[in-house]
């Protein structure tokens, strides 16, 4: 099992990782080994095995719609690289927001 260099480049782009050409070569070779190892599983016949949605045999875990204390704003912001006491500050984002 070998991965194409361009597949690795795409995954890196999606993960927002900037890789040099040398790093891309290394990653392509190392990731190919990992994928090759995992692809051993392809040798199993799973035609009769239902897909597994979750490894735990547990379902329907809910909580009641009861408010619980939130963090203070100061505590929420304390680990942020930058904030103004009210908001997290990040490099300018222009364009769409909200859940897609």
């Amino acid at each position: 099992m070998t991965l194409a260099r361009q597949d690795v480049a795409k995954v890196a782009m999606l993960a927002r990782l900037e890789l040099s050409d040398a790093e891309l070569d290394t990653m392509t070779s190392e990731l190919s080994k990992i994928v090759g190892f995992v692809s051993l599983l392809d040798e199993l016949d799973t035609a009769a095995v239902p897909p597994l949605a979750h490894p735990l045999d547990t379902q329907n875990v809910f909580r009641d719609d009861e408010p619980a204390p939130s963090l203070t704003t100061a505590a929420a912001l304390q680990s942020a690289p930058r904030h103004d006491g009210e908001f997290f500050l990040v490099p300018a984002v222009l364009g769409e927001s909200g859940a897609a």
């Binding site: 408010p67 619980a68 204390p69 939130s70 963090l71 704003t73 929420a76 912001l77 009210e86 908001f87």
Partner: peptide, 18 residues
């Protein structure tokens, strides 16, 4: 997925938790 309030119009970052 958490007990933070969904009330609209609260001061920024006051209805957040881990």
């Amino acid at each position: 997925f958490c007990g933070c309030s969904t009330r609209f119009g609260a001061a920024p970052n006051t209805q957040v938790c881990p």
